[in-house]
Design a protein around this nucleic acid. Structure first.
Length: 425
RNA sequence: AGAGAGUUGCCGGAGCGGUCGAACGGGACGGUUUCGAAAACCGUUGUACCCAUUACGGGUACCGGGGGUUCGAAUCCCCCACUCUCUGCCA
């Protein structure tokens, strides 16, 4: 949520910013409604003040056994006027709210102005594309030969996009999750959270999934609960409607969760294998920080995510999203794209975003300043650290041997319990 | 799922429909005292919004959420959510 007071102060700034995010301009309409709202509130408040004064006067008269019927009927009139004003306030409030919740966050000034994905900038590459002196297979081919993934049976039991991990594949998946969690909790000082996988409408609103992305989430209609598309939702909402003492900031959480995405409207895109699935595993990092430190925290968070890939020695690049490609709630975002040599493609495995106070406003997450005791919104950030399906793609394709087996890097061996995955065929 | 009890400020805990933004206790903060600390004593102790922005300014709202009754509601009525206890079911 944007700050209506700031919009009031400098509407042109917001108009420009929203334009770079390809968002329609409702600012004038909003300011008109805001004007109305404040005017009606003033009138209503004035009458309420009158009513309060006279009502205590009535109390005094009654106590003194004097006649108050004149004032009572007078206040009855006032009461009706107040009700009329308040009804109008309610309507205008709803109209304002309806607009406010659809306005995306403004991009940070360091973000390149651009229309789409094509304008994103690669800001960094780590490692090099590994070279092989034998022909490479893609992850589907490898997985089939090794019998570690089963897409057909997944489709049978749930539908397409629900892969089944089998045997060494299941173990490898679990190993990756545990490895990442340990890295973040032990090396990067995140507190571990195991969140609920279903959340309320309020929570989904708080992080910005609602109302825009309702169609992308699975909904349990009977209870009006959403299956989480990312642990960001429950973990960020941990502190919804709370005031955090400044001394407790920053707060760093790392959480594993299964993630559920309907991927409505993306049919035909990356449909093969693990590249786009409806259910997947992810370790997510979430930070609640002091507003002044959020951009530093953003860089640290990126590094924490990169560390996963560096530890596994997987080549990747970091892309800074342009204004037009930024998600609804983000002010700035880095995507980490991992190299999959068998597919000869980069796959996005992580999004590292700074939401500034956008989510904090929606979810009402504040902190109390030591200096003056006042409250202000925290800044929230999150980053995947990382999502497993595309990590798995790159992992299998990178560590394949000429025999079609997979070599497990040493750092992961304590987690897998084996050093290689051998062909079953 | 059924029955009952509850939901008040940072916490505990009062609150006949009329100075209740809310007693009392604790905590925290500031001050007095002290070489220092503890104790004691005095004081302070929310959030949002509106107006004014010369101010240490004025006003409104908020006692789980939403409606209603009333001149006036934390207090009465209705709906919903959550928590706890018991019963049932279940991993």
């Amino acid at each position: 949520m944007l700050d209506i007071k700031k919009i009031r102060q400098d509407p042109e700034y917001f108009k420009r910013g929203l334009k770079t995010k390809n968002s329609g301009d409702k600012i004038d309409e909003l300011l008109e409604l805001d004007e109305q709202r404040r005017s009606i509130i003033s009138q209503s408040d004035e009458l309420k003040g009158l009513r309060n004064r006279v009502s205590s006067e009535i109390a005094r008269l009654k106590k003194a056994k004097e006649d108050a019927s004149g004032k009572i009927s007078e206040m009855k009139q006032v009461g009706e006027k107040i009700k009329a004003f308040d009804d109008r306030i309610k309507i205008v409030d709803e109209q304002i709210h309806a607009i406010m919740i659809t306005l995306p966050n403004l991009p940070h000034k360091s973000v390149k102005i651009g229309f789409s994905e094509k304008d994103n900038e690669t800001v960094k590459e780590w490692g090099e594309k590994p070279q092989y002196d034998y022909p490479l297979k893609d992850h589907l081919d490898l997985a089939e030969r090794l019998d570690i993934l089963d897409f057909h049976r997944g489709a049978k039991i749930s539908g397409s996009g629900f892969p089944v991990y089998k045997k060494a594949g299941a173990r490898l998946e679990r190993a990756l999750i545990n490895f990442m969690l340990d890295l973040h909790t032990q090396e990067h000082n995140y507190q571990e959270i195991f969140p609920p996988f279903l959340t309320s409408r309020d929570s989904a609103f708080g992080t910005g999934q609602l109302p825009k992305l309702e169609e992308d989430m699975y909904l349990d209609n009977a209870d009006d609960l959403f299956l989480i598309p990312t642990a960001e939702v429950p973990v960020t909402n941990l502190h919804r409607d709370e005031i955090i003492p400044e001394s407790q900031l920053p707060i760093h959480y790392a959480a594993y969760s299964a993630c559920f995405r309907r991927e409505a409207g993306s049919y035909g895109k990356d449909t093969r294998g693990l590249s786009r699935v409806h259910q997947f595993n992810k370790v997510e990092m979430v930070r609640f920080v002091h507003p002044e430190t959020s951009y530093q925290a953003h860089e640290e968070l990126l590094q924490d995510a990169e560390d996963v890939l560096q530890a596994l020695n997987l080549h990747y690049r970091v892309v800074s999203l342009c204004t037009g490609d930024l998600s609804f709630a983000a002010a700035k975002c880095y995507d980490i794209e991992i190299w999959a040599p068998g597919s000869q493609k980069y796959f996005e495995v992580s999004s590292v975003s700074n939401f500034e106070d956008f989510q904090a406003r929606r979810a009402n997450i504040r902190y109390r300043r030591n200096s003056d005791g006042k409250v202000d919104f925290v800044h929230t950030l999150n980053g995947s650290g990382v999502a497993t399906p595309r990590l798995m793609i790159a992992f299998l394709e990178t560590y394949q041997t000429d025999e079609g087996t997979i070599t497990i890097p040493e750092i992961l061996q304590p987690y897998t319990g084996f050093k290689q995955i051998k062909s079953q065929i």
